[in-house]
């Protein structure tokens, strides 16, 4: 059977780069070398790659081109050149010098995956973990019963103005609101324990 990756013009551009000045007839049968200066061509559109990304297996693409290919076969994502596994998270964007004026490529569609930048060891953030994980989750669950009471106890716009502070009515309302607060807290605790 034909070994397809070998017929790909650019699959071993690294080794052929130094030799590409030989006469073309030497290589024409098995793999036709790309013309000189085509090292940075996208393997899909065959143009110079723009918004370039490189796969872990080393193959260069325009991000829009590769993105469209990944969308075409979402459940069988393979490198077009060597059929290695590939995905949005498994490509590295290439930022050339002078590329800074298009600061955030993610704002353009389709988004190019961001470069992965790991934090230095000592400042690995504790605060970001706490904020992203625990706090947001408990807030989401806790808000639910309040929303429920609010929607079922407000009938129309008939709500009276709040009483003057210091009057017995105001004290009663303060008490009631505390009772509801405790009910809510107990409810949340019950949710967690149940």
């Amino acid at each position: 059977m034909a070994d397809n990756p070998e017929a790909m013009p650019e699959c071993d551009s690294e080794s052929s780069g130094a030799r590409s000045r030989k006469p073309a007839s030497n290589t024409a049968t098995e793999q036709s070398d790309p013309p000189e200066g085509s090292m940075f061509e996208c393997n899909i559109c065959l143009d110079t790659a723009r918004d370039a990304v490189v796969s872990y297996c080393g193959h260069l693409f325009c991000w829009p081109c590769l993105h469209q290919w990944l969308e075409t076969r979402p459940n069988r994502q393979m490198c077009p050149v060597c059929k290695a596994g590939i995905s949005k998270d498994k490509v590295i964007p290439l930022y050339g010098r002078g590329d800074t004026k298009h600061e955030d490529p993610r704002e353009r569609l389709p988004p190019r995956p961001p470069g992965q930048r790991s934090e230095p060891e000592n400042s690995a953030g504790f605060s970001s973990f706490g904020l992203d994980g625990g706090f947001q989750m408990s807030f989401g669950i806790g808000a639910f019963p309040f929303g429920f009471f609010a929607s079922s106890l407000n009938f129309g716009d008939m709500r009276p103005a709040s009483p003057q502070p210091g009057t017995p009515q105001s004290e009663q309302e303060q008490f009631l609101s505390k009772v509801f607060l405790w009910v809510a807290i107990l409810f949340i605790l019950w949710l967690f324990l149940a």
Partner: peptide, 12 residues
């Protein structure tokens, strides 16, 4: 695969 071409299909 989109990295294939008329040429590579013919050779195959």
């Amino acid at each position: 695969s989109p990295a294939m071409s008329v040429e590579s299909v013919c050779l195959s």
